[in-house]
Design a binder for these strands. Structure first.
Lengths: 196, 196
DNA sequence: ACACCGAGTTAACCCAGGTTAATGCCGGGC
DNA sequence: GCCCGGCATTAACCTGGGTTAACTCGGTGT
């Protein structure tokens, strides 16, 4: 048996000291899933019992409010984690939809299987901790942006952070990420064009 | 030697399986600090090398933007954690100020000392993980509120969540937590009064 | 070629919140 | 007693974003 996803392994080794032996076990438990554009990895109401890593493609994690509006919590592309993470931690069904914006492939685990890995080696707990910490740092950064930046400034920061996704993201999704409507975003962009 | 802070111990035991023996070690390493109103437990620029628990009193964690505005990231009262947590994880100096809103006492640890505890027993790693997870869940909830709630709706939720702090929080601080000015908050409240 | 649909743009109108400034209301210090 | 400084309120005015709706510009499918 040999490692099927060496890049992923390197990443986890660096992050949490995952060993080659443990990674082989993990790969044995993992499943792969292919998704077409608009397919969901998770939809609201699903049990929060799986999480994965994007092998190829692009996802958006979003919620629909009672009023029907969609707000985007995150975009995730190659090498990044996807899953209804907060709900999984709380042991509740997913409130989040995670949808492919492009034809995509993910490698995923059932959370039961991951728990079995955790029993076997401390590196997996360490990984869970690092993941929680990273996620926290990101959300805190975003909180700060909502607290003291205007929509236009948030847009700027967004493109600094997600340069690599330029051209892959429809504008409506960017607007839903910023917490504004597509109309407002269009207006902001034309304002900027004029000022320039 | 006996346990000095039994309530805290129970809390950590339930959360992460901290044992009595380990907790005694932790108490031995901890220091206590008394703060007057407006004293800071941490101020911007300080090294991020300490964190603590509120024994008594009330704190606000906030940041000042370049424009001089203050935005409040969290309020913390008895039994809750304080510290420049995100910065500590990143190994950078604090960007956050943590200030007492009332005369307060905190029990705190140097992060070096906590690392020594971690070496000694897995419960401390588990605790660190649980703390990261809880913090994450909270920030995600807040993100959601910014994404699809108006300032008035956020105010409502705020009071649901922080009922216990009613009367202890000056209005200006609540406004800074919601991401609006005190003027706007005052307006919202008078609107509500009229409608009622 | 045609109709159609989804995505982005633009305009008109409304409202929430920012800004500035004046006013009122304590509570503390002299 | 008096004054003063911090905090909340109110008003006037401005601006940014929401809403609705019309229009354009590619695709895509038939």
């Amino acid at each position: 048996m040999s490692v099927k996803h060496p890049k992923l392994f390197e990443q986890l080794k660096a992050l949490a000291g995952v060993t080659a032996a443990e990674w082989l076990k993990a790969e044995a438990l993992a499943q792969e899933q292919a998704l077409k554009k608009k397919d969901c990895f998770v939809r609201p109401g699903d049990p929060s019992d799986r999480f994965g890593v994007v092998l190829q493609g692009l996802f958006r994690a979003f919620r629909v409010s009672e009023s029907g509006g969609e707000s985007v919590k995150a975009f995730r592309s190659e090498g990044e984690m996807i899953g209804p993470y907060a709900e999984l931690l709380q042991g509740i069904p997913s409130l989040t939809a995670i949808e492919a914006l492009e034809p995509s492939r993910v490698l995923f685990w059932k959370s039961r299987d991951f728990q079995r890995l955790e029993q076997g080696h401390a590196c997996w707990s360490m990984l869970a901790r690092r993941v929680a910490e990273q996620h926290y740092i990101l959300k805190e950064r975003r909180e700060q942006e909502f607290l003291d930046l205007s929509a236009e400034e948030r847009l700027l920061r967004f493109w600094q952070e997600y340069r690599r996704l330029e051209k892959r993201l429809p504008q409506r999704e960017v607007a839903a990420y910023l917490g504004i409507t597509e109309v407002a975003l269009s207006r902001i962009m034309s304002r900027r064009r004029k000022r320039a």
